[in-house]
Amino acid sequence: MMTVTHNNKQYTVTKMADGYHWKLVEVGSPRNSRTYNRDQMINAGMEHIVSQNIINRNALRAAISKKAIARCIGDNAMLEQAIEAQRKALGVRVNRSSFEVRA
């Protein structure tokens, strides 16, 4: 999460799970929120946020599949490799016990 100023208001920016949308929540007024896609973020002048983390979707799919197979066969070494591959594809921490992603 990071704080940015847009239209003279401060927002906290959170990347959504799909990797293509960002949620902007106004500081001090959590009910005032917006969801922007990648193009809207660039048009709003927040390209520096968008370019920080580009998800490699093919690598992510492969890592999640590998993670599921590793759990199925009970191979801990393969599971650790899959978690590391998923972490690299997303650029965030990955929960070992599930498919959840934590920012």
Results as ranks from 00 to 15, higher is better:
residue 43 N to T: 11
residue 40 Q to N: 02
residue 103 A to W: 11
residue 37 N to L: 03
residue 85 A to R: 02
residue 70 A to W: 08
residue 61 R to T: 14
residue 83 I to L: 14
residue 28 G to E: 09
residue 58 N to W: 05
residue 10 Q to E: 15
residue 16 M to K: 14
residue 2 M to Q: 13
residue 11 Y to Q: 04
residue 41 M to D: 03
residue 28 G to W: 02
residue 15 K to T: 06
residue 56 N to V: 03
residue 99 F to C: 04
residue 88 K to R: 13
residue 4 V to S: 04
residue 17 A to W: 06
residue 10 Q to R: 12
residue 28 G to M: 01
residue 66 K to M: 13
residue 68 A to N: 10
residue 94 V to W: 05
residue 100 E to Y: 09
residue 93 R to Y: 07
residue 103 A to R: 10
residue 16 M to C: 07
residue 101 V to A: 09
residue 82 A to E: 05
residue 54 I to T: 13
residue 74 G to W: 09
residue 54 I to W: 03
residue 5 T to V: 09
residue 20 Y to M: 12
residue 23 K to G: 05
residue 78 M to E: 15
residue 98 S to D: 12
residue 50 V to R: 05
residue 50 V to Q: 06
residue 89 A to N: 08
residue 75 D to F: 06
residue 24 L to G: 01
residue 66 K to E: 15
residue 102 R to W: 05
residue 44 A to E: 10
residue 82 A to M: 04
residue 20 Y to N: 10
residue 65 S to Y: 10
residue 14 T to V: 10
residue 55 I to C: 01
residue 6 H to T: 00
residue 66 K to N: 15
residue 74 G to A: 03
residue 19 G to Q: 07
residue 72 C to D: 15
residue 96 R to S: 08
residue 20 Y to R: 10
residue 50 V to C: 06
residue 90 L to V: 08
residue 68 A to P: 00
residue 102 R to C: 08
residue 47 E to L: 06
residue 82 A to Y: 04
residue 100 E to A: 13
residue 12 T to G: 00
residue 76 N to M: 12
residue 31 R to W: 11
residue 81 Q to Y: 05
residue 43 N to K: 13
residue 22 W to M: 04
residue 35 T to G: 04
residue 55 I to N: 03
residue 48 H to I: 05
residue 25 V to F: 01
residue 99 F to T: 13
residue 42 I to D: 01
residue 64 I to N: 08
residue 58 N to S: 13
residue 84 E to N: 10
residue 21 H to N: 14
residue 91 G to M: 07
residue 101 V to L: 10
residue 26 E to N: 07
residue 62 A to M: 11
residue 67 K to R: 13
residue 86 Q to M: 11
residue 65 S to T: 14
residue 58 N to D: 15
residue 97 S to E: 15
residue 103 A to V: 09
residue 12 T to F: 06
residue 90 L to R: 13
residue 97 S to C: 02
residue 49 I to A: 09
residue 92 V to A: 09
residue 71 R to L: 13
residue 8 N to Y: 09
residue 81 Q to H: 08
residue 11 Y to W: 14
residue 16 M to V: 03
residue 71 R to Y: 10
residue 66 K to P: 03
residue 76 N to G: 05
residue 32 N to I: 06
residue 41 M to A: 02
residue 73 I to T: 09
residue 13 V to N: 01
residue 95 N to P: 00
residue 8 N to T: 06
residue 7 N to K: 10
residue 60 L to I: 03
